[in-house]
Amino acid sequence: MEHKNINLTLKVWRQQSTVSKGEFVTYQVKNISQEMSFLEMFDVLNEQLIQEDKEPIAFDHDCREGICGMCSMYIDGKPHGPWQANTTCQLHMRAFNDGDTITVEPWRAQAFPVLKDLVVDRTSFDRIIQAGGYVSVNTGNAVDGNSLPINKNDADASFAAAMCIGCGACVAACKNSSAMLFLSAKVSHLALLPQGDPERQSRVVNMVAQMDKEGFGACTNTGACEATCPKEISLSNIARLNQEYLLASFTSAE
């Protein structure tokens, strides 16, 4: 593939703090290698801003390997940018052409308040997990892998749900700012396994209650979350969550 350097215009959301008013600021970046990642391009821009004695742009990042779920940029009208099944850190500049103007915004949801620039507070996800996204029954010592019979399809579906990295792209993409894809992935990966069975009712009830308390919207099954999810979490997990909730509401003894 031919190596190219490109020049870009960036319109980036700048916001000093949660309570201050934000605005778009336009920056020019020159001679950007198309082999760079999107975050590396932001590193170059921040170096440029520091040299100009300006404040660098705050943005979330950690592993830069597409597995931690920290990066969270809404690029040109899509969470994590134009590529499918991809995180911002794995988006490379070959996705763009010389002379492009790129608009970069933070995740927008009341449950994800902006802390600064492109950094949002996603601790609401942590509190949802704390409400029931775990197994607390005593499962004893590690046993032989085959001693507990689990259907291969269930094991695969559970693993696919457990792929969720909790980045929040589903919330950012949803017109209702709903966290249902995230929540359904966390409920499904435990509901499909025998270890998660004893607490399945209290788990789904408590996690849905916490999600509502955090101020996320209700799901309307538009599918925008599934289409933008970097880990391709399936919409069918939401239907499974609905089933879990429906059964819990009719059969719960509490």
Binding site: R108, A111, G217
Partner: peptide, 11 residues
């Protein structure tokens, strides 16, 4: 649901 976004996206 409409109230849950806060600030709207530019794109």
């Amino acid at each position: 649901n409409r109230s849950k976004r806060g600030t709207n996206y530019a794109v």
